[in-house]
Amino acid sequence: MKFRIYRYDPESGQGMANSPRMQDYELDYDPQGKKVLDALIAIKDTLDESLSFRRSCREGVCGSDGVNVNGTNVLACITPLEGLKEPIEIRPLPRLGVIRDLIVDMAQFYQHYRAVKPYLINLDPEPENERLQSPADRAELDGLWECILCGCCTTSCPSFWWNPDKFLGPAALMQGYRFIADSRDQATDERLDYLEDPYRLFRCHGIMNCVEVCPKGLNPTAAIGKIKTLLVKRAL
């Protein structure tokens, strides 16, 4: 199988050797039942031990191996090799700084995540056991809590590409809504105050790349739409 993989090591020295490049690999590999991550590990094992990428759980739970394969953001560990057009082009997630090869700097992504205060804010005294929720209220959180913060959606969003420092991006906005929708949370107004901004929220133009690439099949655009609906309800 033929692979073309983005290589860049800012610490490798000066000049041409230090500029980002695409490197070709040819791997004798049976793609049957294998995922992109299996091939990356095989390349690192047998062809080039300097190839760097993140991975941990290798089954689509940890969200650490988000990469761009043939132009689409995916989790390498759950993307089948079969059916991919060769040479399979693997690049780091777009728009984030590259630390090395396929490893990107997620600082900006996490900063936006922190900004939406992704935790329950409830000033009532803590109950004996837990804060209870009706099954219907709990169901509101389905399709939101499953996000693993892999960054595939946010880095596929053109609005994030143009304003990465100001637009929160689909992942952070969906996590913002996850706590707005939580019946136990008491900071809805403050959360909406924070989001009501031409940049933070309203850079979303409903392009829906986020929905297309989400490896967990979630719908950040719908969550953003619900935030907008709540803002309208609040304003009228």
Binding site: E190, D193, Y194, L195, E196, D197, P198, Y199, R200, L201, F202, K228, L231, V232, A235
Partner: peptide
């Protein structure tokens, strides 16, 4: 300034 600009919604709507 900790809140949003409180703008954008009117135009969007």
């Amino acid at each position: 300034r900790v809140g949003g600009a409180h703008r954008g919604l009117d135009m969007w709507l």
